[in-house]
Simulated assay, not measured.
Amino acid sequence: MNENKQLGAQIKALRLSRNESQIEFGKNFFPVAARGVVSRWESGKVVPTAERLAKIAEMSGKSVSELLHGTVGGKISQIVEALSELLDTPNFDPNDLMANLSSGKSKSKDKEEREFENFAFDFFRYIFSDKYLTKKSLQSADAKENAIKGISYCARKVSEVAKEINVQAFQTELLYKLFTKEAEAHFAEETRTNEGLFNLAMLSVEDIYAKKIPKLLYGKRQNDGKSVELPNSINKDYLQELEKILENCEDEIYRLGARLGIYEDEK
């Protein structure tokens, strides 16, 4: 249902809740809205003027934005429903779904559908690679149930974030990004928890120490693939001291996590 029809349905519901005919409902406005005008509003063929929208919003106890675009909660529910529908196929196979989304076999009709499919592809990349069920090991038959759990988890997190940063219902693209961000964070075990912060800190230090510094300083020879140090002006003593600091930092993060019960020290 497009937004004009959604608005029309809300106007009709409001009129019926007031036990008014279309003629009676039109008399709430100045100038009066004719019966035919109200009918076109309700069918979604015409959108009321800004002044009349404001009056309708006042009568319904909603904001104009909610009338036009719905609520954020409603939009999140729509996204959940659309994602869940992609899983609702006989003999569900996540590989088939990803192939269809990436190749465009679903034959999207418009920009909104293409944007949704691009989002769904990015979102499910993390969901299908992650674990949301409490089972020790997941079988291929668990993929659908696990994905449903993942969608529900991300929806809860997005609802919390959307409320805090004041996301509006019409900001669909932003909501897509928030869904994908939550799925990515769960996959990387970098959630907004003590454990997530611990993992983020550890992985960030490790990334600098084990990946970024070597990537900066070394390259592979094309003839034999051996790693060689690239020309640079870095002071060797400075590099050694920096590596020691990073190594000590990693140890300190472990100790802090163990002391606060965030990380169980196995040593």
Results as ranks from 00 to 15, higher is better:
Leu83Ile: 05
Asp142Gly: 06
Gly219Lys: 00
Phe128Trp: 03
Ser21Thr: 15
Glu190Gly: 11
Asn232Gln: 13
Lys111Thr: 04
Cys249His: 15
Lys131Ser: 15
Phe25His: 05
Gly257Thr: 01
Leu256Pro: 15
Ala162Thr: 10
Tyr263Phe: 12
Ile23Lys: 10
Glu182Leu: 07
Gln240Gly: 04
Glu252Asp: 15
Glu241Ser: 07
Ile262Thr: 13
Glu243Lys: 09
Ala13Lys: 01
Leu87Lys: 02
Gln171Pro: 06
Asn95Thr: 09
Lys220Ser: 09
Lys62Met: 13
Asn2His: 07
Ser129Phe: 13
Cys154Ile: 09
Leu67Trp: 05
Asp224Arg: 10
Ser39Gln: 00
Glu58Lys: 06
Leu175Pro: 02
Lys135Leu: 08
Gly225Lys: 01
Cys154Asn: 15
Ala82Tyr: 06
Tyr153Phe: 10
Asn199Trp: 08
Ile127Leu: 08
Asp96Cys: 05
Pro214Glu: 12
Glu81Gly: 09
Lys55Pro: 00
Gln139Ala: 07
Glu85Phe: 07
Glu58Cys: 14
Ser77Pro: 14
Ala82Met: 10
Met202Asp: 12
Lys215Ala: 07
Ser152Cys: 00
Ile11Gly: 02
Pro90Met: 00
Glu189Lys: 12
Val47Gly: 08
Glu164Gln: 06
Arg192Tyr: 03
Ala258Ser: 01
Gly150Pro: 02
Thr172Asn: 03
Ala57Gln: 02
Lys105Pro: 00
Ile23Glu: 07
Arg40Asn: 05
Cys249Asn: 14
Ile148Leu: 06
Ile151Val: 12
Leu133Asp: 10
Asp110Leu: 05
Val38His: 00
Arg192Pro: 11
Glu173Thr: 11
Val46Arg: 01
Lys211Gly: 14
Leu260Tyr: 11
Ala147Val: 09
Val205Thr: 11
Glu81Thr: 07
Ser129Pro: 01
Arg156Val: 08
Val46Gly: 04
Ser102Cys: 09
Glu81Pro: 04
Gln78Trp: 05
Phe92His: 06
Asp96Ala: 15
Gln240Phe: 11
Gly61Cys: 08
Asn100Met: 14
Met202Val: 04
Lys226Leu: 06
Asp251Met: 12
Gly44Cys: 15
Met1Pro: 12
Lys62His: 04
Met59Gly: 01
Thr49Gly: 15
Asn118Cys: 14
Leu68Asn: 10
Ala147Tyr: 15
Pro31Ser: 02
Ser204Ala: 15
Lys27His: 03
Ala54Arg: 01
Ala82Gln: 07
Pro90Lys: 03
Glu42Gln: 03
Ala147Ile: 13
Ala183Val: 02
Leu246Arg: 11
Phe116Ile: 02
Phe119Ala: 10
Gly61Pro: 14
Asn166Val: 13
Ser43Glu: 06
Glu24Lys: 09
Phe187Arg: 13
Arg156Asp: 04
Gln222Tyr: 03
Asp251Phe: 14
Glu66Ile: 01
Arg156Cys: 12
Leu200Arg: 11
Phe170His: 06
Asn4Ser: 10
Asn4Arg: 08
Glu115Asn: 06
Glu85Cys: 08
Leu216Cys: 07
Lys136Gln: 14
Asn4Phe: 05
Pro94Cys: 05
Glu113Asn: 00
Leu178Gln: 09
Glu115Lys: 08
Ser137Ile: 14
Ser43Ile: 08
Leu174Met: 11
Met59Ala: 02
Asn19Glu: 13
Gln6Tyr: 05
Glu195Ala: 00
Ile213Gly: 01
Glu85Asp: 14
Gly26Phe: 04
Gln10Ile: 02
Ala147Arg: 11
Lys12His: 03
Asp207Ala: 15
Arg255Glu: 11
Lys267Tyr: 07
